[in-house]
């Protein structure tokens, strides 16, 4: 069970108050008509699917109902930070080696990050 800090409410709440909404920081092409099929297909269907640090949107569905961003490790599920829409993450895959907790969980689950 995640215990998620909503940056708008300023409080930790349980996972059931939230819904995950997929990859964060996706920009709609400014001129869709000018896109090639590849660019448009990439925008619609292709998502980051890293084994490691991932930036994603969540919505505080039964709280303030606002969308915000979460940086989370997809193997340990550790939430590294949450931040408001429009802001940039302070933790990225490059800034963060595999965390100790992630390594420990990986070991236990028999999976490799």
């Amino acid at each position: 069970m995640f215990y998620i800090y909503c940056p708008y409410c300023g409080e930790h709440r349980e996972e059931e108050e939230f819904h995950p909404k997929g990859q964060a920081h996706i920009e709609r092409p400014k001129e869709p008509e000018a896109c090639s099929d590849e660019e448009w297909g990439d925008y619609l269907f292709f998502r980051d699917n890293p084994r490691g640090v991932h930036h994603e949107m969540w919505v505080h569905a039964v709280g303030c109902r606002k969308f915000f961003n979460v940086t989370r490790h997809t193997v340990s599920y550790e939430i590294l930070e949450t931040y408001k829409m429009g802001e940039q993450p302070s933790i990225t895959a490059d800034s963060q080696g595999p965390s100790r907790e992630a390594a420990a969980v990986s070991q236990k689950e028999g999976v490799r990050a």
Binding site: M1, F2, E15, E16, H19, P20, N49, R51, H54, E56, R72, T74, V75, S76, Y77, V105, E109, V111, A113
Partner: peptide
């Protein structure tokens, strides 16, 4: 499925 991306081979209780 759990709605979030994950490679952890485990899911959530909710």
């Amino acid at each position: 499925i759990d709605g979030y991306n994950g490679y952890g081979q485990r899911g959530s209780y909710p």
